[in-house]
């Protein structure tokens, strides 16, 4: 990767292609996880890569390139998400039958061993996450869905560890409240 970056500095197109191919899965994953509504993931991926190329000279090499790229991708997404002022407020009728069934089964069965449908769970969680602020969404995504450590989240976001823990705690509380509200609102 170091050799690729040296070639990149000399405007080598093959190196640029190799660099993008290597980092594309990481950037796409982050972009999809924090994609604002009405924004195409390809547009945002392009914005992220352009920022990376424009600031490549500032990369010190002290941290892995993936961490540096992650931070740029996350900050770009957060900036885009800031423009989203309105957050949806879901009602029972907004959920699909499968999601409604999932909410009911979540409340009915408290056993950890009962498996839940993965795709419906993900869709439901995405809808609940959409009600949170971009920062809260990010911290839940990184800590609980990607199962990253607090230290990794600190490297990606640049936030302090206490801030991450407090933000995650508050975000979980908000999600629990949303779930309780939905459970109480069902007909």
């Amino acid at each position: 990767m170091a050799a690729c970056m040296r070639r990149l500095a000399t405007r080598d197109e093959d190196a640029a292609r190799m660099f993008m191919e290597r980092l594309y899965p990481l950037v796409l994953k982050l972009v999809r996880a924090h994609l604002p509504r009405r924004t195409s993931d390809e547009d945002l991926v392009q914005t992220v890569f352009m920022k990376i190329f424009a600031n490549l000279g500032q990369y010190s090499g002290q941290v892995p390139i993936e961490h540096w790229v992650s931070r740029i991708a996350v900050n770009t997404c957060l900036n885009e998400l800031k423009a989203e002022k309105i957050r949806p407020e879901w009602r029972w009728s907004d959920f699909s039958e499968e999601e409604q069934h999932l909410i009911e089964s979540l409340a009915a069965s408290a056993s950890d061993n009962d498996t839940l449908p993965a795709l419906a769970s993900r869709d439901l969680l995405d809808k609940l996450l959409a009600t949170l602020s971009p920062q809260d969404r990010l911290v839940i995504q990184l800590l609980h869905l990607e199962e990253r450590s607090v230290s990794e989240v600190r490297q990606i976001t640049g936030w302090s560890e206490p801030m991450i823990k407090v933000r995650a705690f508050r975000a979980r509380k908000k999600l629990q409240k949303s779930l309780r509200r939905l459970d109480g609102n069902q007909p």
């Binding site: 979540l106 408290a110 839940l116 993965a118 769970s121 993900r122 609980h144 979980r172």
Partner: peptide, 18 residues
């Protein structure tokens, strides 16, 4: 508590999509 457990189960199931 129950709501924490519900949320943990939801996270666990959603992670499988990854």
């Amino acid at each position: 508590n129950d709501s924490q457990r519900e949320l943990s189960r939801l996270f666990k199931a959603a992670r499988l999509v990854k």
